[in-house]
């Protein structure tokens, strides 16, 4: 299956590590996932992935290839059926429920295709929710930080609105701020622009890219939008249960085909 233009992730990781010297945020070793049911569905066949701080990684692949499955496992929302996942060097299979909750709260942020904001709360309250969950209440400093982020994504005048009073793009920008609320090390975004028209999609993407550059938080973003993938630092392709890193050149050629 491998052709000359694909390099394994491991090779590249070693390369990057030696070049950039950025710390590893997430690593998987031989990651496997099979959905057991009436028919067992093997989805991931043993993936070795390394994600470093400061990176913006795009994951592409056909629908049903296992992109979401992978992302959920990387963020400890789902458990693998084989292999290990290390977040900040910790094997997450050794963590109990409460420690997993702490990890999801402090180290990982999520953005989904749907914004999943809570309609019972305002934009500001939604953006502060990870802080509220963690501390019971946001203090002034935390609130100020989130207010600044909301300003950065252009939602200053929307902070008291509820999700059903805002547009899809505005909600998704609010969800971005929410994913950043506890200053995580990595943000996992599953088709964050998938529900948006191309203009708001691009807006949302460029905001994510800015946050990545400014705060150094790593992003792993699943996307079907080839132009957005081109704008990432690295592109990972999932195909037939395996993952490959492909160069932007190779990606452009694939798209052209």
């Amino acid at each position: 299956m491998k052709n000359s233009e694909t390099i394994t992730v491991d090779e590249l990781a070693v390369e990057q590590n030696s070049n950039g010297g950025s710390p590893l945020v997430v690593e998987t070793r031989g990651l496997k996932k099979t959905y057991f049911g009436k028919i067992d569905v093997p989805v991931l066949h043993g993936l070795d992935i390394k994600i470093y701080a400061h990176e913006f990684v795009a994951i592409i692949g056909q629908s049903g290839s296992g992109k979401s499955t992978l992302l959920n496992i990387l963020g400890a929302l789902d458990v693998p059926t084989g292999g290990t996942v290390l977040i900040n060097g910790t094997d997450i299979s050794t963590l109990d429920e409460d420690e997993l909750a702490t990890l999801r709260s402090d180290d990982v942020g999520f953005i989904f295709q749907s914004h999943y904001l809570l309609n019972e709360f305002t934009c500001l309250e939604n953006a502060l929710m990870p802080v509220t969950i963690r501390h019971g209440e946001a203090d002034e400093e935390q609130t100020d930080r989130v207010l600044r982020l909301l300003e950065r994504v252009g939602l200053s005048d929307q902070i008291n609105k509820h999700p059903d009073e805002m547009s899809g793009g505005q909600n998704q920008r609010c969800a971005i701020v929410r994913s950043l609320a506890n200053s995580p090390k990595i943000i996992l975004a599953d088709e964050p622009t998938g529900n948006l028209d191309s203009r708001s999609g691009e807006e949302v993407f460029s905001m994510m890219r800015e946050m990545n550059r400014e705060s150094g938080v790593a992003f792993v973003m699943i996307t079907h939008d080839d132009r957005l993938a081109q704008a990432a630092d690295r592109i990972l392709l999932i195909e037939d249960g395996n993952i490959f890193e492909i160069s932007k050149e190779a990606h452009r050629e694939r798209v052209a085909k």
Partner: peptide
């Protein structure tokens, strides 16, 4: 249920 899922993804504990 789905709200429970999203709350957990934000770090909410079962007890909460």
């Amino acid at each position: 249920s789905s709200q429970i899922g999203i709350l957990k993804s934000m770090g909410a504990r079962q007890r909460q």
